[in-house]
Design a protein around this nucleic acid. Structure first.
Lengths: 365, 365
DNA sequence: CCGTGCAGAACAAACGATTGTTCAACTGCG
DNA sequence: CGCAGTTGAACAATCGTTTGTTCTGCACGG
């Protein structure tokens, strides 16, 4: 005996506070069946045979009431939230944006939700650091999400290893750690080699490399790529041509300045900067030393971004498959959350390639 | 009668697969009390008197078991998730980053969580558009979050009004809509006036304005600021000095080109571009027309960002209190979710100010 | 004519927490 | 000594789903 459709109005017209949200019970009552039947019909549960007539009645009732299953109730029962947390050190680092995009794409494809958490820099508020860790921990440990994707290096080792110990499904992006099950990386070594090769091809022989702190395996892989390209060209790497700075504009500026000042008599004609933000700083330092880019010094940056088009001069970069890395990371965490064993993967497609702009040129005679 | 403290060990040492997550029941059992007492003690419920001895016993048990209240169970009962969704059109627009930062800061302060959702462009996948809307709707309608912050204009009006109709707590950032309760904006008009004034102060008299589609009230407010500054300087606004493009580099480039081509004999000496991305395009178009910045044409962009330092030339901008806007938005949505009426607010502190770089100079004689 | 089997659906027990109500013991007062 | 009041804690209902189990007819085969 379906009731008049005006019933729900009464509740809402009365008190704005009371939310007129229909539950599965309302649907069951309206359709004259049990809630279990409603649940099975609405989820197309193949285990349960239901008369077409009943099926229609339930679907009609759900439609009329604008019923939507409550996610909290469902999660309580199923022990899944279909939500994954993605932790990034900060959002203003262009490197992450592509990865996040890839993560979102794959998440949408699989019907998962993403909770993006910015690991607010400890610098912002001294007190926020522990609180923020708490926050992160609470996400996953309190059952709010089914797993965690930790993007890049800046995540506290403590936090990550702590979560790993507690059996929390976890995937690292572009980073590996002992004791952590899953990770996905791009071929940093190939990319850095490509960047170096680009300068070699232009005729450069004296090429410097700016890495970044903290000394993560990512940074190390990039340096390895640089070294291997140099070796392949039968060139020896002069330790005075190496320096590290933070993965920021300032870090790149400092490291570049260090290299340029070490031996004013002999300067590199090309610099490979292992991250894009750092390359912006490199531009500043090169110019501050009274040199021009690319006439006096060529610069190649690792990781591409739109903004590289608009710098002065526009930066030649190596473009890495970051979006794909994000997709894979999401795929992996879903598997991990499903209880499958996941390993460490490397994304090789699309292959890294050089985006040539105007920060590179042949060395002067 | 406190039992021996060794009880919990047995369970966890056995099977690694089985998640060793303690529930409130485990704590109650270990402490020898009822779950209700555990709940009240752990939340410091003042309604219930508890013997200090019992209190300690419970806290010890919780500590031993590493108990953390399950967020899903709690949310089901309390009807709150303490989580809010933030929807942005895309993450690679630098304008949003600051706002998001402000949102996160305030959220952390209030112990709330943020679910950042990128409204994946319909362009990405034609089929993803409806699905993505579904996703958004599901967030808030399925009880996953307590409310929604919609950042900027690109949110589908349909979606927003639909949610507003359904009484979903909702706050718009830098946008207002009829029928939507809460919003927070910066003083776009003052900011745009400031940008214009900057050029006027340098001696410019022929100043163009590049707005952006879609014609949101934000865009309109900026244009109004431009107009009012011009009027105050007793200058009339030539309609041929106005153009709009999308809020992107390409949009800014197109609009600027339009203006420059309209009347090759007479060109503006200064351009106010109503968004930063658009200003990048403006630089391109001005240069493409054979003109130099700032010698031939000065450019001021609305909204500041680090990347403005590295463009060629570095852009003079107007810096808006976007972080503060984000904080206020979070504050507002929390109130709205608590059932309070919220209105439309304007963030005036810190006041907009010009960040002078090198895209502005006095007009040539 | 009597099981047997199956379709179709109800029943009921979780999931993990919060919170209104009840209950037992003790205290203190008349 | 009896009773009211208070303290300290247990009892039990509930939030909205899902899912294992049970139940009721009915059709069919022997």
């Amino acid at each position: 005996m379906p009731r008049s459709t005006s019933a729900p109005q009464a509740a809402s017209s009365d008190l704005g506070e009371l939310s007129p949200v229909a539950t599965i019970k309302d649907v069951a009552k309206l359709a004259g069946v049990d809630t279990s039947t409603v649940s099975r019909v609405l989820r197309d549960d193949p285990q349960q045979a239901v008369r077409p007539e009943t099926r229609e009645r339930i679907k009609d009732a759900a439609r009329m009431l604008r019923y939507r299953p409550n996610a909290v109730g469902r999660s309580l029962r199923t022990r899944r939230t279909d939500t994954f947390a993605v932790v990034v050190p900060r959002l203003d680092n262009p490197g992450f944006i592509e990865v996040i995009q890839g993560i979102q794409i794959e998440a949408a494809r699989q019907g998962k939700l993403v909770m993006l958490v910015e690991r607010i820099a400890a610098a912002a508020e001294s007190t926020s650091s522990p609180r923020n860790q708490d926050l992160l921990a609470s996400l996953v440990l309190d059952g709010r999400v089914d797993g965690l994707i930790a993007a890049f290096a800046t995540i506290d080792d403590q936090l990550v290893t702590g979560l790993a110990e507690r059996q929390v499904p976890l995937v690292l992006v572009n980073r590996r750690m002992p004791g952590v099950r899953g990770s996905v990386a791009v071929d940093d070594e190939a990319g850095a080699a490509l960047a170096t090769q680009q300068l070699l091809d232009l005729g450069h022989r004296d090429i410097a490399f700016v890495g970044f702190e903290p000394e993560t395996d990512t940074s190390r892989r990039r340096e390895a790529g640089y070294r291997s390209a140099m070796e392949k060209a039968a060139l020896t790497v002069d330790p005075r041509r190496l320096a590290v700075g933070g993965p920021s504009k300032q870090g790149g500026a400092d490291a570049t300045e260090t290299i340029l000042r070490r031996d004013p008599g002999s300067r590199p004609t090309g610099i490979v900067v292992s991250n894009l933000l750092g390359a912006l700083g490199a531009l500043v330092s090169v110019r501050a030393a009274g040199l021009r880019v690319p006439e006096d010094v060529s610069i190649v940056a690792f990781n591409d971004h739109d903004l590289a088009e608009d710098t002065n001069p526009p930066l030649t970069t190596v473009r890495m498959p970051n979006i794909e890395m994000g997709r894979q990371a999401m795929g992996l965490i879903v598997q991990a959350a499903a209880g499958l064993e996941v390993g460490d993967m490397m994304v090789t497609e699309p292959a890294p390639h050089v985006v040539e702009r105007h920060s590179t040129a042949p060395p002067r005679s």
